[in-house]
Design a binder for these strands. Structure first.
Length: 299
DNA sequence: AATTTATTCAACCGCTGAAAT
DNA sequence: AATTTCAGCGGTTGAATAAAT
């Protein structure tokens, strides 16, 4: 069944001429990551000798570059990225690796696949099919927008709730203050619970739990440790990349992540907003960004 | 509910050019 | 200078999954 191009026919995971082929197991990923940790990227043909992996250099390099590299950006291609792909493809044609250089965290393979599935067919297919695709995308987009509105409404409600509480607290404090300073009658300093007072109150988001259960608060003062994601479960079972994201890096991603968050709003509402596990933490950033936008006008 | 069709994407291949021997 | 090795590129395949019938 799996005759990859030319050459001898070998099944998935079958050892052919000493080399294993097909999908990678979590153990193989672990070995490869360990190899890179110890020896760095490159010298791929030494992997088998030094790590015990029964994969050839080519396969190892590909696995690392397209899947295990910690700086990979996961999640769907954003509209912004899509426009870059289109623009650069018009300019350079199928020079995928060149295009990929303009999209940090995206691989040439990913861009190639994306372009082929989204644009190559569209160019060929009859108008009716294009319409169908358009309608389907539109439908999905509308649904996603609705979900987003619901989320925002919930967040606004939470904010209002916090405001009310703060008002109560302030008035209680004022009462207390007034009682304590009964004899100082001209106490102008004790402000009433004016808007300007609670407007500066920025409610802290509850810590978000990532796919791994790792707490990722993504508060402005979140430590680097809080922003680390260690191991993920994916649909094929395992995604072991160790992605360490510093606070400035996370901030840099925030913009993109916001797009991802909006674009990938997930129908199941599974808490990851439809992004891949690797982006789960980053998406928390997006959520934070959304929330921040709600608060900003009051600041 | 079952079947068919379409889509996605990880992993393969052959080829090429650069670097090492 | 010739040969071998290695890394990287673009094209292709097919298993898994989603959507349509």
């Amino acid at each position: 069944m799996s005759s990859w191009g030319g050459g001898h026919v070998a099944g998935w995971g079958v050892v052919e001429e000493g080399w294993r082929k097909g999908p990678w197991t979590s153990e193989e990923d672990r070995l490869l990551m360990e190899y890179v940790r110890l020896h760095g990227e490159g010298r791929w043909n030494s992997v088998a000798r030094l790590s015990g992996l029964k994969r050839n250099g080519k396969s190892c390099r590909l696995r690392w570059v397209n899947y295990l590299r910690p700086d990979l950006k996961r999640g769907q291609i954003t509209p912004h990225e899509e426009s870059i792909i289109l623009e650069l493809h018009a300019k350079w044609g199928n020079r995928w690796s060149t295009i990929a250089r303009s999209l940090p965290g995206r691989t040439d393979n990913e861009i190639k696949n994306y372009w082929r599935t989204h644009f190559k067919k569209k160019a060929k297919s009859p108008a009716s099919n294009v319409e169908k695709t358009k309608n389907r995308l539109l439908k999905r987009q509308q649904f996603q927008q609705q979900r987003q509105m619901e989320m925002m409404q919930q967040q606004q409600q939470l904010f209002r709730f916090n405001q009310l509480h703060m008002k109560k607290i302030i008035s209680l404090l004022e009462d207390d203050n007034n009682n304590n300073n009964m004899d100082s009658s001209n106490s102008n300093s004790s402000s009433s619970s004016s808007d300007s007072n609670y407007a500066v109150y920025v409610p802290q988001m509850a810590p978000q739990t990532t796919a791994t259960g790792t707490t990722s608060a993504y508060a402005p003062n979140a430590t680097e440790e809080q922003l680390q994601v260690h191991h993920y479960q994916t649909n094929n079972g395992y995604w072991p990349a160790v992605h360490q994201m510093t606070v400035p890096e996370a901030a840099m991603y925030e913009d993109n992540a916001l797009w991802d968050g909006l674009w990938n709003f997930d129908a199941e509402g599974n808490g990851n907003f439809g992004v891949s596990p690797a982006m789960a933490t980053v998406t928390c950033g997006a959520r934070k960004a959304c929330f921040h936008n709600l608060v900003t006008p009051f600041c």
